[in-house]
Amino acid sequence: MGSPPFFFKWASRLLPWFSPISFSILIIGLIWGVGFAPSDYKQGDVYRIIFVHVPSAILGQSIYLMMAIFGSICLIWRAKLAGMFLRSAAPLGASFTLIALISGAVWGKPTWGTWWVWDARLTSTLILFFLYVGIIGLYSSIDNKQKGDRAASLISVVGVIIVPIIKKSVDWWQTLHQPSTFSITSSPSMTSDMYFPLLICVIGFYFIFVSLLCNRLRVEILTRERNTTWVKEYLNNKV
C-alpha cells in the first residue's frame, strides 16, 4: 500500500468510477439543499449557503488533520507516499478553507450585518488558511523533494493544534459565530429535511476531495518517479 507504484495502479483502476460517483453525490446534495430543502423560519433562503459553507469548513479542518498524521509518518518512517500526500493535499485544503471563509462572509453580511469580524472562530480559520499557504510556499521554495516533504511535515505537525482550537473556539470564548449545528456526537439542531441534504453534501465533499487527491497523487507519483523503470514501462505501454 505504501509503495508508489502499487498505489498508482490501484488509484488508476479506482478513479474512473469513483470520480463520477463523487460528483453525483455532490450534485444530488446541492440540488436537494438549494432547491428542495425548506427555507429557514428566521433567515429565509440565505441559510442555504450552509450547504457549501459547512462541508468546506469541515474539509478544510480534516484535511489539515490528515496532513499532520501523514506528516508524522513522513518524519518517522520517511515514507515517500506520505510526503506526496502532503504536497497534493495542501492546495486542496487551502481551497476548501478559502471557500469556507468566502461563503461565510457572504452569509454574514445579510444575517449578522457585517462581512467580517475578528472573533475567535473567524480568526482561527484565517490562521488555518495561512498555515496552508505557508506549506504551499515552502514546497515551492525548496527544490529538493525530500527536504521539502520534511519541512512541510514539520509545519503540519506544529500547526495541527489550530484544528481543535477552531472546533472549540465557539464554546471557549464569546464569539459572533454560532455554536455548531452539525456534529457527529450530538443530535443536530435542525430538522431532518434540512439535515439530510447537508449530510449528503458533507459526504459529497469528502468524496470529491478523495478523487481530486488521487488524481493529484498520480501526477505527483509520475513526476517524482519519472526516472524509474516502472514509470518508463507504464508510459511505453500507454503510447
Binding site: D40, Y47, W112, T181, M194
Partner: peptide
C-alpha cells in the same frame, strides 16, 4: 454605532417554528 445580529445554531422550517 454598529449593531450586529447574533444567530443561534437552530435552523428549522417556518411551519415547525410556528
Amino acid at each position: 454605532h454598529e449593531v450586529l445580529a447574533k444567530h443561534d445554531e437552530n435552523y428549522m422550517p417556518p411551519e415547525v417554528a410556528k
